[in-house]
Design a protein around this nucleic acid. Sequence first.
DNA 1: GTCTATAATAGGATAGAC
DNA 2: GTCTATCCTATTATAGAC
Lengths: 186, 186
Amino acid sequence: MAGERSTREGVLVSLMEEFRGCGFDGVSLSRISEVTGLGKASLYHHFPGGKGEMAEAVMAMAGTWLEANVFAPLEAGGDPAARLAAVLKALEGFYEGGAKSCLLDVMPLGGSPAVRAAVKAVFLRLQSGFERLAQDAGLPRAEARARAEGALVALQGSLVLARGLGDTAPFARALKALRRDFLRSA
Amino acid sequence: MAGERSTREGVLVSLMEEFRGCGFDGVSLSRISEVTGLGKASLYHHFPGGKGEMAEAVMAMAGTWLEANVFAPLEAGGDPAARLAAVLKALEGFYEGGAKSCLLDVMPLGGSPAVRAAVKAVFLRLQSGFERLAQDAGLPRAEARARAEGALVALQGSLVLARGLGDTAPFARALKALRRDFLRSA
DNA sequence: GTCTATAATAGGATAGAC
DNA sequence: GTCTATCCTATTATAGAC
């Protein structure tokens, strides 16, 4: 997910960094022009729909990344413990240990209905993916559902706390607790 | 905390609703003028520092509310179960059952250093307040610390999830779990 | 304390050359 | 595909009358 600046993907990576750092409304086209190295007109060549389309494209790219690094392990067969470890490691990297905010948190504010719909869809798929993982580990359906929601709450909440405190430790502790407890039998 | 629109407190209540609904950058002075019923010049009469000062005033008012409805019960003596119940009931009302976002989540994006400092201070005080409550219930210090952080994570995370899903149920479940488990002996 | 009016700037978006 | 130049609107903020 590293980005050469000249490719579309590189532009989107820079865009994502801006959006998750400042939120949709906090990012200006001038700023986007700076960080991507592209003039405003060039940006409109790539994203005729303007800032709204840029946000949707960022959500789509994040979706692609999630597909490969989170949904796939969650929904694949195989050892639940290994799948959990893979997912948490991927998320730890994505959030840079708690230093970066989550698009699912910051994008709904100011984002278009399409962006909000994407956020909702991702939350639902994460929920069912974690639920599937917990069930594969032998947990009953109701308990699996509760743990899946708990995992999403822990990830989002600890990121909010980490940002507010300017300290990544809460996120690190949340990951540690998930590794320890998520699959533990009831 | 109900607001007549003409008093300073009423203006601040309207302001807080806007800020927590759209974030700092998502709120314009025109919008603020609409919802408060005051012209822009009048707003600058009350808040010479402009939007930044309005945000700081909102944080201050929220701090006052927290003082009376959350910090006081957390830090008071008396039955821990009753204090927990009072705090959670107050928070449930403040967030309207999960329908409203938290300033601690949305204000750091775009907010001034003063606002971010206020957010951090509130998180620290909440952390130590919940920790005190758990200790008063007989939990060892380390466990009390962990539960306090867990409570903040659960509140923030469930609010993020509720907003993203457009469904207050995660917040309701988080409150229920806190009522059930926060003081339970280890 | 509130208003109307207005400035000054930043924001999103487009035209047209290269 | 990218650029410079420009447009239009919204935004923040202020002046000055009442």
